[in-house]
Simulated assay, not measured.
Amino acid sequence: MSEDETLRYDKMVEDALRGVVREALIKTARDGLFGDHHFYITFRTHFPGVQAADHILARHPEEMTIVLQHQFWGLEAAETFFRVSLSFSGKTETLIIPYAAITGFADPSAKFGLQFQALDGDDDDIDEPEEEIGETESAPVVDIPADAEGKVIALDAFRKK
């Protein structure tokens, strides 16, 4: 049975959970952060579609974690990627990060975290960000059980080995 003939539940679940990240960023771009909410976002720096200054990529050759809390500007969330400006050594730099490049997302104030298996950079489902930022459709809503608070959801048990 070929991969085209199987249901890839692991990929479907990861796509749905990446929708949680997308929705959090869409709401934050629209309304700003409120309360103590803040995000730690870890991503693969050389994933197709990631755009950052060369000196940032050189300092973080594989993975990087950014914090969206007090000092970030111009957050824009699209369907397949987000754009944000952050300060690096006193200089403002803009990053463009496809959601598929994200390997971790956490909001410590909500005791919420997600960990993702890095997608292959040559996956046919991954496109370079070409869409315009502006009005975006809402991501599908994913219900997270009330008893899941404070738990990191790992999907390794569902992956093909």
Rank of each mutant, 00 (worst) to 15 (best):
I144G: 03
F39A: 03
E23L: 11
V21S: 03
F34H: 12
I56R: 01
L17Y: 12
F72P: 06
E135L: 09
I144S: 04
F88K: 06
R22H: 05
D120H: 11
V152R: 09
E79N: 10
A52E: 10
P108W: 04
K27A: 12
S138T: 07
Q115S: 14
Y9S: 03
K161T: 06
P145M: 04
F34L: 01
R44H: 10
R8C: 07
R22E: 07
D31Y: 15
L25I: 09
I102E: 10
V84F: 14
R159S: 03
Q51L: 10
D31C: 01
F81G: 01
S138L: 13
D10F: 12
D125S: 15
E63F: 06
E132M: 06
A110N: 03
E128S: 01
S2I: 02
F72V: 08
Y40I: 00
L75M: 11
I126F: 06
L33N: 07
L114R: 09
P145C: 00
T65S: 07
F34S: 14
K111E: 12
F116G: 02
D123Y: 02
T103N: 09
I56G: 03
R83P: 02
F72H: 15
A118S: 15
E14V: 07
G113K: 03
M1S: 13
L86N: 11
D123V: 02
A101S: 15
L95T: 10
S89M: 06
E5S: 06
E79Y: 03
E76I: 00
T92C: 02
G113H: 00
D54Q: 14
D31H: 12
T80Q: 11
E93S: 14
G49P: 05
K160F: 01
A148P: 00
T103W: 03
D4A: 11
G150C: 01
L33E: 06
V50H: 11
Y99E: 08
P98T: 07
G90E: 08
H37S: 14
A58S: 06
L25Q: 09
F39D: 04
G90M: 07
D122T: 08
F43P: 08
A29W: 09
E79C: 00
S138A: 14
E76L: 13
A148M: 09
A58E: 13
A24H: 13
I133G: 14
G90D: 08
Y99C: 05
G134A: 11
E135P: 03
A77R: 04
T136S: 13
K91I: 15
A146Y: 02
A78F: 01
T45A: 05
R30V: 06
G90K: 05
W73Y: 13
K151L: 15
T136D: 03
R22Y: 04
T42C: 02
R18E: 10
T45F: 10
S87Y: 08
T92N: 11
T65Y: 02
G104F: 02
S89R: 13
V50T: 11
L119F: 11
F47A: 10
A53Y: 02
R59E: 15
R83V: 04
K27F: 08
I102N: 09
R44K: 14
F81D: 13
Q115F: 04
D125P: 00
T28P: 04
L75E: 08
D123I: 02
S2H: 08
G49M: 06
Q71L: 11
L95P: 11
E3A: 09
I26E: 14
K160T: 03
